[in-house]
Design a protein around this nucleic acid. Sequence first.
DNA 1: GAACGAAATTTACGCAGGTAAAGAGTTAGC
DNA 2: GCTAACTCTTTACCTGCGTAAATTTCGTTC
Lengths: 353, 353
Amino acid sequence: MPKGSGAGGERPRLRTMEELSVAIGVSRPTLSRYFQDPDSVSRSSRERIARGLERVEYVPNFFATRMNRKSTGMIGVIIPYLNDLFFTKLQQSIEFAAMEAGFTVIVQCSHTTPEVEARAVETLISMNVDGAIVAPLGDNSDIAAMERLNRRLPFVLVDSRPGALSHVDYIGTEHSQSMGLMTEYLSRVGDPPVFLAMPRVNFNALNHERAYLDKMEELGLEPQVVGTEEIEPGAHYEAHGELALGREFAEGRLTDRSIICVNDRVAIGALRAAARFGLDPGARRKGGLRIAGHDDYPLCPFLVPSLTTVGQDVDAIGQAAVARLMKKIRAENSLTDHAVTLFPGVLKLRESA
Amino acid sequence: MPKGSGAGGERPRLRTMEELSVAIGVSRPTLSRYFQDPDSVSRSSRERIARGLERVEYVPNFFATRMNRKSTGMIGVIIPYLNDLFFTKLQQSIEFAAMEAGFTVIVQCSHTTPEVEARAVETLISMNVDGAIVAPLGDNSDIAAMERLNRRLPFVLVDSRPGALSHVDYIGTEHSQSMGLMTEYLSRVGDPPVFLAMPRVNFNALNHERAYLDKMEELGLEPQVVGTEEIEPGAHYEAHGELALGREFAEGRLTDRSIICVNDRVAIGALRAAARFGLDPGARRKGGLRIAGHDDYPLCPFLVPSLTTVGQDVDAIGQAAVARLMKKIRAENSLTDHAVTLFPGVLKLRESA
DNA sequence: GAACGAAATTTACGCAGGTAAAGAGTTAGC
DNA sequence: GCTAACTCTTTACCTGCGTAAATTTCGTTC
């Protein structure tokens, strides 16, 4: 028994409000009101309860409290996968915003699997969350599950929106603008840029590609897309970027072009491919190799060379999503408009392009 | 109204099992048993219920179900922060292992704040989770809260263990071994290595530093630690690594030494500092600059140069933590031993050292 | 065909606490 | 000094479901 530290450890533990009420001589309903809002009971009761709680260990049962209240005070969040700093950053900004609004956040991860995503939806519904924010698995998402969510509770999509859900509230980045920005910039400073894509087209990958194509057409330039086929099974993101671009370099292609990667993770692989072929991507030289990404992954400034990219305002997206959700929750379905908020991307010019 | 897709959308929605029982002509308790385990009711009832569920929309209330069961089927996980791929990877392996065991995972993030961590502990307790896995905030953690958790339910610490909690089960990496491995390797191939530390010493940073010092003493070499002071407020991890090592380089120091960084994120900053000073860290040359990290951050192989580091077996840690927790849950506190499982680190030799 | 069991279902109560309505206590007004 | 008006507390019932015990069902055996 190495520890018996402090007085905190030895307080008698009470299981129910009933026990607590006899322990400190206040009726159970009064306690119930106290725990929901201490100011809803008289000052004398409040102080008496506060003193009592110092002498015992008691935590109201989460399930019992949430079961009966009209509002559970919880919002559900579903993100597609964990090993991506973009989504964890988004989750973080949502958690902070929700905390500020006095809500508890329940996070579920779909782990890139539609079945898991659908199960997460069921879990959130069964928990009676007051609302849900979902970053979907793109077009792989279980549309029916999303529809159910949308019918049953206040619901906001973030990051991307499957085509079939165009009637659902959506907060994200204005991808056509943000990708257009990069396309335009690179067209201005060098040869027409090439788009490095991903094979498993999901999420915003398609939007990015389309935005690139549109902008190229607008500029009267010939678009070129590489990296659409799977090169090695299981090689995604960074690995795919390195392999796909490495293959081009090996054939002597693209070594002096501007490469727009579908996102920063692919761009990291692209930088690696360049290094492997002794190439030095950078904004410095006219006509030289340039590599750019999209998303402004937190590590971008620290890469060698630091990665030029388009920043998404993740904090704004998270906050706006929570704000919109709060509005819908308070309005109790009397809201008929459906909101789409798109934040513009911001060019982050660094060394790589 | 753009969508009315599928038959799934129009099914009548039932709120309670009671309603469902009259709707499909089976008693409510039978339904209750069905939802816990379909095989616990007769085949005829099972099929009847299954058919009925296709015609209506019903999801059992999560709170009501969990409130009465002896087991909630949930385990709680607390991680210190989100913007770190190490912890998200750990979380992922825990989620997969728990899913396999048929448990739902509730994740809470402490966001580097002891108060938030303590609140997360209260939330888990109030939810009656069957057990908890906590990656603590190091010595900043609210020890009393952890003690409470440990008294009330099966509890396992992962990643690091505050000194005051040495009596709690712990699963992690054998840091003295893993850091020793790197120290030894670098001592063998070049000049005595220097340790690049972090100012806000928390988590395993101190363990790493101590392991380095011990190994250096064992090897009869003079240890040297840099980067312990805060250089710029708010500059953590990568930024700190770049600033701290950059300062040394600017003074002409350490440019041909081996640098062991306290972790990979700091090492990424260190690589950046080297690039800024035109230095090319690598294993290639005798006596040249070498930079190594610790953790095997998923991006390490894709950095330029790819980062030599020590890999932690995150999957093994997550799985072992869940396995230990399951054992404790099944044993219902009859377990008196307290387990410590440390996985050895594995040298990942790459280009940078 | 009746009696016997095993299996399945139903009855009845419990969980921990929310909340409307009734009751008690206090202050204010006359 | 008494009643009105208000505040706070308590009574009593409710939530949605788990589960032990009681009951029914059904197939089997004698």
